[in-house]
Design a protein around this nucleic acid. Sequence first.
DNA 1: CTATTTTGTCCGGATACCGAATATAATACA
DNA 2: TGTATTATATTCGGTATCCGGACAAAATAG
Lengths: 406, 406
Amino acid sequence: MKTADPELMRAINRFTVLDTIRRHGPISRVEISERSQLSTTTVSAITGSLLDDGLILTRHEGDIRNAAARGRPRVMLELNPDAARVVGAKIAANHMVFVVSNFCGEVISTLSLPIRVNRQPIGVIADLVEDGIRRCVVDAGLGLQEISTVCIGFPGVVEHRTGRVRSSPIVSEPDIDFAREMTDRLNVATIVESDAHAITLAHHWFGKGRDLDDMVLVSLEHSLGLGVLHGGQLFRGAGGLSHNLGDLMMGIGLPETVRLSALAGEAAILGEQTQQGRFADAVRLGRGMALAETLIAAEDNALIVAATRAGEAVGIAVANIVTLFGPPRVIIVGSSLSLGELFLKTLSDSYRSAIPSSIREIAELVFDPSPDEMWAQGAAVVALCELYESPWGTTGPAPAPQPASG
Amino acid sequence: MKTADPELMRAINRFTVLDTIRRHGPISRVEISERSQLSTTTVSAITGSLLDDGLILTRHEGDIRNAAARGRPRVMLELNPDAARVVGAKIAANHMVFVVSNFCGEVISTLSLPIRVNRQPIGVIADLVEDGIRRCVVDAGLGLQEISTVCIGFPGVVEHRTGRVRSSPIVSEPDIDFAREMTDRLNVATIVESDAHAITLAHHWFGKGRDLDDMVLVSLEHSLGLGVLHGGQLFRGAGGLSHNLGDLMMGIGLPETVRLSALAGEAAILGEQTQQGRFADAVRLGRGMALAETLIAAEDNALIVAATRAGEAVGIAVANIVTLFGPPRVIIVGSSLSLGELFLKTLSDSYRSAIPSSIREIAELVFDPSPDEMWAQGAAVVALCELYESPWGTTGPAPAPQPASG
DNA sequence: CTATTTTGTCCGGATACCGAATATAATACA
DNA sequence: TGTATTATATTCGGTATCCGGACAAAATAG
């Protein structure tokens, strides 16, 4: 249990001010004071400190409130984009995306590698990731020593606090300390996070969850993930473990145990033929689902059945999640959305029939294609959140292993 | 977003000290300082204030650390049991239990009413609850004006923040403002909470969750509830709604939508005959499950099938909850435990086969009969928590409608 | 060019935490 | 019995924080 001292107090208020500036663009001190309920005196003191530290900038224009405004004009404050740079990465079965972002979370450079890392030994994956990060940083015109933090979004179950990958569909070995591995390789503090958590924060900062501090995100990719935002913070399970939706048990009374991943995972939808069959090339290019959509349009029966089954299963799973968390919005993202209208409609219908009537109106479903770059950007946001040093890490304290000095 | 000022700081530390005293019995100031990471100076100041307010007491004996202890003896501090009294209640389909507790949460008086309130109009239920509370308070040798807060644990979906009963198996009308109703009747601040949340806190304070700040509780009664403790606090869904496990969808590929309540609810287990059939009297007495156990022992086939089906379903549901929340312990309580060994074993086996292997070791299952009085005691704990004024109410701020003055 | 208005900063007061010194209340021992 | 020792609790001084009110600053209105 954290003890409250003046230092913590300041940290909290400092974060509040910084976050307010981040969210509400160029903003004056008075407005910060109004929004944060802090006195103008305190806001001045804190913004002064932030200016000293170079985290924010002043701008003497852009006071839009009224052209004919009396009185001393407001000085607008905004994040200093160059206050720090971070790297975000998304590792998926058949591609990797890297992003260098500035302090605002804006993307400076991007690198997309359509490489299949599926089931490669961890050393090979680490090699590829290291190369990608170095390349992307160079593309941004920077050196690695100018990067504050790296965050890598991984599919599967990831333990944020320790940076361990507990289980992932793209890694054969279990329980990898990937954060330590990459920290040692890059000599930059590296954190590892669930890809679903990354895209959740991306939507909170830039996407369809900007207006909400409570929401749930379901990611439908090669593996199925979940992100829960609670009070503006990621809700990580006890122990900081990420969730793995694919492990949810669907169905009772069936002869065998059936998990969601067996109904709505990529392999389940595209069939057993992803390795050698007609989908092999498309999957390798990350276009498996798009191809599937065209085939569905051409009335490919097996795929229609698979997509329908998957939509039904996900709809039910989402209904159960809404029953448990009661969020006002559920954002559904991931490559499986490319399956097209049939899948989405089946999912929505299934959700509607599965959601209990008493909470029918609570949550709205929102679909978003969320390009791969946004996932990597989300990882960058995770890194930035560590920099912002949110003091009320209710769930997991700052992990970021320090790079070995020397 | 809450602004941090010295007042909040003090509130946080004050709560920390008070909670430490509550948890660790008679305890000296030095030990509080060690446990809370606060300086002895601060602890002295805060305990002085608590003593002034009459919330704690000193005791000059019981320093057990060493019989031959040098130096000034420690003065032990403990909660003042008489600092406040609260009422806790559990309302169930076929009985009500009331409890008056002191400031420590210890039960002063109990009243159990084996009355079936199922489907009665809300006015009738309110009458019965009011009478029960008044009676129980009198039994404790107190007057209603000596009661600080009342908390009523209700089955079903309850909105803690507003005290509204959204849907409950024992109420026919939807969306009842029961907190307002009882506050007006009793002229005592009354809060309404999910019964599952109440028993969760009871286990955290006195039962099988004393040692953990993160855990999950599943209640199997007439309706199926869930309580999630996260960081020592109840995790209430966005909007402060309680969860309703019975609404979980089990099964896909079945011809119809099947919810958990249809597999493991009381009616589902005992069959359609609870109203007039062989169970009528037993259910009325709250012994339906116990009777079922004896019948199962006598190899009643229908019941064996029902109990097995229920156990399987609950096991799967618990596995899914563990997948989502990752708690170190799951406490399972409720009248359905009386079904006996067959049910428990089926449940455990089902859970074990349903839990993903990657997190198999994370959670332990614990069964607890949890007598009805403990549920009411839990409701009293909810009330006490409000009194302790936990300042970091992450999920729902203090609701307690003030009684109409006059 | 002055009055007005709004914004931002400085000053004094209150509060809280903490470390060090001091007071307190017991035992150990000559 | 009286003094030294020891561990606990309180007091004192220092520092950091927030806040309200007075003051300085920078624009427009007339």
